[in-house]
Write a protein that binds this DNA or RNA. Structure first.
Lengths: 350, 350
DNA sequence: TTGAAAGCGATACCAC
DNA sequence: GTGGTATCGCTTTCAA
């Protein structure tokens, strides 16, 4: 329960607190101390005493004095969503290696909670924010940027030009899924989406329609928009499949994992089989996609890249060194295929 | 980019900084201010000025002075593991509602990183730690408790009596899985586990053996321990299944999600089917378990409860109000079954 | 290379 | 109810 301060170390080592501060903040350079104008012997003694006494820097004090906290905050809508969880893990890792601590939080799709969280983070002097915003979150986030906290948006876009952005090209993702199915020889391709108009979904829909039109298949475009509610959605998909059998539909694009799950459920209920009755292109990740080989084709977002780009961009913004161009990063989704004969599934482009 | 301090508010409102501090820390009680000995009118004026000026408390300063940070740290081995992600989400939620901020981090099964993280968290003056420790993590965590930071262990146990614990009864989980299979009429039940001797696994193994012995089936006990490496494990399971067909094995207990995935892979490779050739009891959660109805029986840990109990216990420990008995919480795993005919899968006990 | 001293912004303690 | 002021532990000039 002891509290060892910089003074204790200074006294014990017979030097001034300044020296101790220098030593404790010195970065190793190839060999010994570099950035610190301290006699190596003194430094060694200080280090030794610090260790013996079990000294640990009080970050609150350091942060108060220096104005830097060496921490950032990451706010997503749901920490338990595998999509965000993976991004968070990667960001935490990068941050750790860069000497940053990260505070995570879930906004749970509530602009109010987001606003409250932003206040909290501002109070913690975080140096930057990475946010997967919920609808209506712009006010809260503008608050952050207005007090000088750089903010990077991921996953979903929001109006406002003070933000950095690392987004995925969902139009392209929709196009890619559709073109892949063309490549497999299918033309009667449909998409099942939700009624709620979030951009990630509408962009995928748009990509699908575009690709169909470009292929001269505008008459075959069938874009189903079902209810978001789980029970309604389940039933909706079953109905669509029933009709699809009559229509002779060849393939479905399922632009979210949940929609894919409802679709597998519908297959079971109707006693259908995947390569025989329909072909699927799914989105995101699921154990089910990988159950058999070749895997069920699925479009994934480059999670590690999202993490890396957003963290890098944030650091640039913290250093006020990001150009307007650098502040808008667009990444490409990947289509995962294959895996037969002991070969790992690979990404492909269409 | 302005910085509004308590002094600015005090000056503008024509009161002392003390008053402002009182007001800013006052908790609402039913009606107006309660715990603060300030004239309601003055308080209102201060609040008003604070809002107008856009004042936000500097937590670093508050923490430095008061010694309290209103933050806790949660360290798991892998943030992206759905098991931990779900626990983290729940803890974050509870913490948020209790006015705490939480710092998350992954130890990635490295005692060194864990030690470093603990140092960092200590430096941040976190009031407590919730940790899913990696092997060899006891030294690092004892460091935390030795400087007076209450620590609660989840998922895995570690020696040391300064820790609080919220663990799941894995022996019982193993027993439960086995008894369920008895109940289905099976006797030739085997378990596939790993060679690495982590307690969560050995406990489940122990439960299986115990149940088998109690049923007079000691001669049927077949506990396979395969390599942890993915490729080796995949091959291992395939071999086991081949032999099992000859032996007439009826059921397998797969005590981790990954082992279950390898097993599904083996079924595919060998062209086997689940209810026909073998029965499975799996562990954890996977989309695959829920693919068909009834669901594949699987044992899950009470994640929300782990989160709730560990956070509650930690708070008790922070207030030095936890008895030795309260410091050791054991939770029961649940067996999930059913879901046929539109009925939701439910938990059962055996 | 080294050290003295001035704060960072809030809270705690004590007077009034 | 209200206000002064001494810290909290550290970083940061500025001199020596």
């Amino acid at each position: 329960m002891k509290k060892v301060t910089i003074r204790d170390v200074a006294r014990e080592a017979g030097v001034s607190v300044t020296l101790v501060s220098f030593v404790m903040n010195a970065k190793m350079g190839k060999d010994g101390r570099l950035d610190c104008p301290v006699n190596p012997n003194t430094a060694a003694r200080v280090l030794d005493v610090a260790k013996r006494l079990g000294y640990r820097r009080n970050n609150a004090a350091a942060s108060l004095r220096s104005g830097r906290s060496h921490s950032i905050a990451v706010i997503v809508s749901d920490l338990a969503n595998p999509f965000f969880a993976e991004i968070c893990r990667n960001i935490e890792n990068l941050a750790y290696n860069a000497g940053y601590t990260v505070i995570f939080a879930s906004s749970e799709e509530s602009p109010e909670k987001l606003a409250h969280l932003v206040e909290t983070m501002v109070g913690y002097n975080v140096e930057g924010l990475i946010v997967a915003p919920c609808l209506g979150g712009e006010r809260a986030l503008e608050r952050a940027t207005s007090v000088g906290i750089p903010t990077v948006l991921i996953d979903r876009d929001l109006p406002g030009d003070s933000f950095g952005r690392v987004l995925v090209d969902n139009v392209d993702a929709g196009v890619m899924a559709t073109k892949y199915l063309f490549h497999q020889g299918f033309g009667k391709i449909e998409m099942i989406s939700y009624k709620l108009g979030v951009t990630s979904l509408t962009d995928r829909e748009h990509g699908y329609s575009m690709a169909m039109e470009d292929a001269g298949l505008e008459d075959e475009i069938r874009l189903h928009r079902i209810e978001y509610d789980a029970d309604a959605a389940k039933k909706g998909v079953i109905e669509i499949f029933k009709d699809a059998l009559k229509r002779g539909t060849e393939a479905f694009i399922l632009p979210t994992k949940k929609l894919a799950m409802y679709s597998f459920n519908a297959l079971n209920v109707l006693g259908l089989n995947l390569p025989k009755d329909f072909s699927f292109v799914c989105f995101d990740e699921s154990d089910i996609y990988d159950l058999k080989k070749p895997v069920i084709p699925h479009v994934v977002q480059p999670l590690a890249e999202i993490a890396e780009k957003s963290f890098t961009l944030l650091r640039k913004m913290v250093d006020s060194a990001a150009t307007e161009e650098e502040k808008n990063v667009t990444l490409k989704a990947k289509l995962i295929l294959g895996g037969r004969f002991g070969v790992q599934p690979t990404e492909a482009s269409f």
